[in-house]
Simulated assay, not measured.
Amino acid sequence: MINLDVPAKFAQLVDQAHQAAAEFFRPHSRKYDQAEHTYPRELDMLAALLDGLAASGGGAGAGGVRRGGTQAAGNQNGANLRLLLGTIEMCWGDVGLLLSMPRQGLGNAAIASVANDEQLARYQGKWAAMAITEPDTGSDSGAIRTTAVLDGDHYVLNGEKIFVTAGERADCVVVWATLDRSQGKAAIKSFVVDRGTPGFTLVRLEHKLGIRASDTAHFRLEDVRVHKDNLLGSPDIQGFAGVMQTFDNTRPLVAAMAVGVARAALEETHRILTEAGIPIDYDRPALTQPAAAATYLQLEADWEAAYLLSLQAAWMADNRKPNSLQASMAKAKAGRTATDITLRCVELTGSLGYSENSLLEKWARDSKILDIFEGTQQIQQLIVARRLLGKSSTELK
């Protein structure tokens, strides 16, 4: 049986993450939204603190968690759920600043998912970004054109990567490339490319609608030589599942980001409505309350569903159960819910929500990316349909 109550042993973690969000993220949220591409130096001290928490087993950042070990008797509430709860609290503070945290990149989740023990040790303490999207390849990651050709002890990578979160600031980038285009998805592999590697060129940084505190990079790879030891997982062309394990880790985290920013918007809207004389009464049917209160209750119910789906995906990972379906369900529900909630909160609060006097308009902008990256809403629905109907990617497109 799945128990989705927050474990008592994680109460201190949740409190610490919330304090970090309240004391570090919220006060600097507007500053770095307006100063796009400026690195938030205030995060260095917080990153050192989180490194200490992670070392003691209480990490609260966005880095990856690796599955492993043996299944103990009974339900397990472990590292994946702990990480997800911490991410929710931090994104209650600011999504862009969390994505700017040193050593907490989405590439770290990729390394944690499929790296061997030697690679885990070698990249311990490194900040890793992840590069999947290409100019001609968006949501269909199986159509990647960046190539990796084995030459002696090195792979030679050629191609372009766009929308790389924290690409300029990270120590290394996990690059997805194909060993053989003719083999389709089965030949897609991920490679860790250290920044400064010859031929690995930063083309530009993107200007964005939201998460402006986080840099988003465009890279070009021209004859980039990467040692074969930097290939994550097996070098054999045997299936797409290896690299796709990354998404089982990262999609629940993105769902958690969406849950966090949506909760922030709900709390602020609750405050504004209450001060305006529109109380939210949980003991009365929604249809007997003012329209704004009824709408708020509906939004809160949607948030609860997204929250529970996210917890379920993390719980299944902790209990070593396949969670690809649940990860996609959580990502799809939370991504859409966050955009719906934040935009409706702006609508409910009128001029207060639309102006920069409140963070509501910023949260509305920030939330949109959470419905797009790590697989768009449409891709998540397609994955869920395939899983439920037992169809392959060829049978259901």
Rank of each mutant, 00 (worst) to 15 (best):
M329N: 06
G69H: 05
N158P: 02
G61F: 08
S351I: 04
A177W: 00
G59D: 15
D340N: 11
D153R: 05
E304M: 10
T349D: 05
A255G: 09
C91T: 15
L150M: 14
I341K: 03
I162N: 00
T146R: 00
N77C: 05
A330G: 06
L221W: 01
T70K: 07
I341L: 06
C172L: 13
S328D: 12
G142A: 15
G199N: 01
A293Q: 09
I369N: 03
M45K: 12
L325D: 03
P198W: 04
V203P: 00
G260C: 12
F24K: 06
L253T: 15
A148V: 12
L84S: 13
A8V: 15
V65S: 01
F163S: 05
Q378Y: 11
M257N: 11
P7H: 11
L49E: 12
M1N: 09
A314T: 09
G61D: 00
S393A: 12
V65D: 01
I211S: 08
L83A: 06
V346Y: 02
W176M: 02
A47L: 13
V65F: 00
A265E: 13
E42M: 14
V156E: 01
A55M: 05
Q326H: 09
R344E: 12
I144K: 00
L50D: 08
A73L: 08
E36K: 04
E89Q: 14
I188P: 02
R344L: 08
L343V: 02
A166L: 10
D151F: 07
A294H: 12
L311Q: 06
Y32C: 09
A338M: 01
A35Y: 11
G52I: 15
L231V: 00
Q380L: 02
Y282K: 11
L150P: 07
H227G: 05
Q76C: 08
D302A: 13
L308N: 04
G152I: 15
G353F: 01
E222N: 04
G167C: 08
V6G: 01
T87V: 12
R67A: 12
I341D: 02
S355W: 08
K362G: 07
P235I: 09
N158T: 15
R195W: 10
A115C: 10
D229A: 10
A21N: 07
A131H: 01
T342R: 04
S234G: 10
G184Y: 11
I144G: 02
T70R: 10
A121Y: 11
L266P: 06
G96Y: 08
Y307P: 00
S214R: 06
M316I: 02
G196L: 09
D136A: 06
W92I: 12
P7N: 12
V192L: 03
W363N: 12
R225S: 14
F24L: 13
R122Y: 10
A294E: 15
D318T: 02
V149L: 02
M90H: 05
A110Q: 01
P252I: 01
L232I: 15
L106M: 15
A55K: 06
I383S: 02
A79N: 05
E347T: 08
F240K: 00
Q245T: 11
H28S: 13
K362N: 08
A286V: 04
G68F: 14
H154N: 04
L266H: 13
G210A: 04
A258L: 13
S393H: 07
L84N: 09
L273A: 13
H28M: 13
P235V: 10
T197C: 01
W127G: 03
L266E: 13
A55Y: 01
K161F: 00
I272G: 05
